[in-house]
Design a protein around this nucleic acid. Structure first.
Lengths: 182, 182
DNA sequence: CCCGAACGAGACACTGATGTCTCATCCGAT
DNA sequence: ATCGGATGAGACATCAGTGTCTCGTTCGGG
């Protein structure tokens, strides 16, 4: 009988990713619970979004762990990261835009994640694998942007699901890697 | 005494780009006009957003014209396009997220713009300048995503304004161009 | 200079979403 | 079987935003 809080969060994430303006009532109905119950678990809309943020951070952190970004070449690390992040791409896209709009008060967990992503690009630069004229901060932003774009491209049918990882990885790595022009 | 409708639109664009949930009252005050006057020019919030959309389409189209995307190498065409789009990057970022959220009912003008951007990438592929395993549709989406990411990166101080064009162009073209790995 | 159109300020009703509350019901543990 | 905690449904007040209106003022063209 007890509501599965995490399941509610995942349903809310799926809904809010597609429709950021969904009401609490819509979120509740999508999760198959009453609005009152939703309020019992999340004090309000802000609390829900904050919980969503924590879920996103948890999943992103898990993806970083699973991708073992310290091992092998930086390119392969980026490829593994893209693969691991794919299931959470929608949530990430939602949170990225959410964070862009509300200046200031953002969860500190993002800093840690930014650092870990940035570290991969730094490592690639240090080891001579990536070009050094594109800053790790920019490559990190670009990574978020491309994952979001990739999610929407797949969501709207402009890119096949099976191509998600390849398209992002090739574009990002093609731009980041040192290479000799043809 | 008469309100400069286009100036109001530009102010609204600047505000809504930073805070998408700004109220009509905030938009009016930002433009230095009364809320009633704002309503006299734009029937409602929807009308305002639609007018903003048309402004964005006009500016984007003007950027495409100014970039002369048919001339020279496709790479240079992309570079010129990025340079021309820079002043409207914020508005574009706003409209891109706006369009992603509201499925369906989107201004048909976007199709024409998408086609023109996509055509540049197609030309690059046809002329052997760009790799063919990344679809023009994806490169177009990635272009929007990178311009948006670039805008926010500059806006939040993670990338210097002067690097905006270079960072986007190098990443996008590095990923799109055919090249021999080091 | 004067008249009219456009404006700003504010009042007003209306709507949609929110947050809180009650109460009947249901399910699980004991 | 029973008891208690959790739930769903719905009522309710509240609030923010919207759209409309009026009225006094201001500016600019004739």
């Amino acid at each position: 009988m007890t509501v599965d809080r995490d399941q509610v969060l995942r349903t809310a994430a799926a809904l809010l990713t597609r429709k950021a303006t969904a009401t609490m009532d819509e979120v509740a109905r999508a999760s198959g619970i009453g609005r009152a119950t939703l309020h019992r678990h999340f004090a309000g809309r802000d609390a829900l979004v904050r919980a969503l943020e924590e879920l996103g951070i948890r999943e992103f952190e898990a993806a970083l762990d699973a991708a073992r970004t310290d091992e092998g070449s930086a390119s392969d690390a980026v490829r593994r990261l893209i693969a691991e992040i794919e299931p959470a791409a929608g949530l990430l896209a939602f949170l990225v835009t959410e964070n862009q709009l509300f200046e200031g008060e953002m969860n500190e967990g993002w800093d840690r994640l930014d650092s870990r992503v940035s570290a991969v690009f730094q490592r690639g630069q240090r080891q001579g694998e990536f070009r050094i004229d594109l800053s790790p901060a920019w490559l990190t932003d670009a990574f978020y942007g491309l994952v979001s774009s990739g999610f929407w491209a797949v969501h709207d049918g402009r890119v096949a699901t099976k191509d998600f990882q390849y398209m992002i990885a090739e574009l990002l790595l093609g731009g980041a890697r040192r290479s000799v022009e043809q």
